[in-house]
């Protein structure tokens, strides 16, 4: 029973990583930039989720509003942060992004206060028995379901819509796409909107699972999501998703069996380094 419990726990963790990593990997695919400030949007999503739920009493409304607002903030971040730096080496954008991320933690602390904020009455806390002997809170089930719905949505978007086809074309060859009449800038804005909205959804989910948000909640996901997209082979959406689930599960097992040796965050990176030594371009890279 214990093994199954851990597996489910890891799966939930992996679903959250997947939601965060998706936006990162899309941005990397388009711009070849490691978007560290993505985690600020995750934190912002968490705060909006808690504050709007507390104000209106509706988690659903909070989730939608958080996703839309953060989506627009994401577009703004592209406009002021990355667009002027596109002609520079990627390292410059990376450092600028880290700078924004560090500053944002401080901004959250100044605006929302240094202490954590919780739900007035935490929604979705009923336990449901999903298998004989194993029960999960509704919140956890919702995390997994939401992750799958959103990811299936993106899959549909990328295969069946003009935006998706144009995005894939831009990822493969921006110049060619541009000369075929794709407005590359519109694609980039849309991807920032979608990726940031997903990060917000992940933020709301994490706030629900922990029943609190705090200014530094983005720190660990930001770096771990970078590890995930590297593991998945930078820019590969499918790779990132599989790597998210894999890491979620490995980490959960690791915290139980390797606790004397390594802490939780270093397990992820130990695994990352190990994989990169065997496959220097990620698990799912070609060749």
């Amino acid at each position: 029973m214990l093994a199954i419990d851990i597996l489910i726990q890891g799966f939930i963790q992996g679903s959250i990583y997947a939601l965060i990593a998706l936006g990162l990997t899309l941005v990397y695919g388009l711009l070849r930039i490691l978007h560290v400030a993505h985690a600020s949007l995750f934190t912002l999503g968490g705060y909006l989720g808690v504050l709007i739920t507390n104000a209106t009493g509706s988690l659903f409304l909070a989730l939608i509003l958080a996703m839309i607002t953060v989506g627009f903030v994401g577009m703004l971040s592209y406009r002021i942060l990355y667009r002027p730096l596109l002609s520079q080496p990627p390292l410059i954008a990376l450092i600028a992004s880290i700078g924004i991320f560090i500053a944002s933690e401080e901004i959250f602390r100044i605006i929302f206060g240094p202490f954590s904020i919780s739900y007035v009455s935490a929604p979705l806390q009923n336990q449901i028995e999903i298998l004989p002997g194993i029960s999960m809170s509704e919140a956890r089930i919702m995390v997994v379901v939401l992750a799958f719905v959103l990811l299936l949505g993106v899959n549909w978007l990328s295969r069946r819509t003009r935006l998706g086809i144009a995005t894939r074309a831009t990822v493969i060859d921006p110049d060619m796409a541009m000369s075929s009449g794709v407005n590359v800038d519109v694609i980039r804005y849309s991807i920032f909107f979608i990726g940031s909205a997903f990060a917000a959804a992940a933020g709301v989910m994490v706030s629900l699972l922990n029943n609190l948000v705090e200014p530094t909640m983005g720190a660990v996901p930001s770096y771990k999501a970078l590890a995930i997209i590297v593991l998945g082979g930078l820019g590969s959406v499918r790779g990132a998703l599989i790597a998210s689930l894999l890491l979620g599960i490995i980490e959960t097992f690791g915290t139980i069996y390797l606790d004397d040796l390594l802490d939780r965050d270093s397990i992820a990176f130990a695994f990352l380094i190990l994989v990169l030594m065997i496959r220097p371009k990620g698990i799912f890279s070609k060749g």
Binding site: L34, A227, V230, L261, D265, F269, A270, L276
Partner: peptide, 18 residues
């Protein structure tokens, strides 16, 4: 390149973790 940046970032976390 980016893989190197992330690998060395991993070293940083590994060190404090150990």
């Amino acid at each position: 390149h980016d893989f190197l940046a992330i690998t060395t970032m991993g070293v940083s976390f590994l060190f404090t973790g150990i």
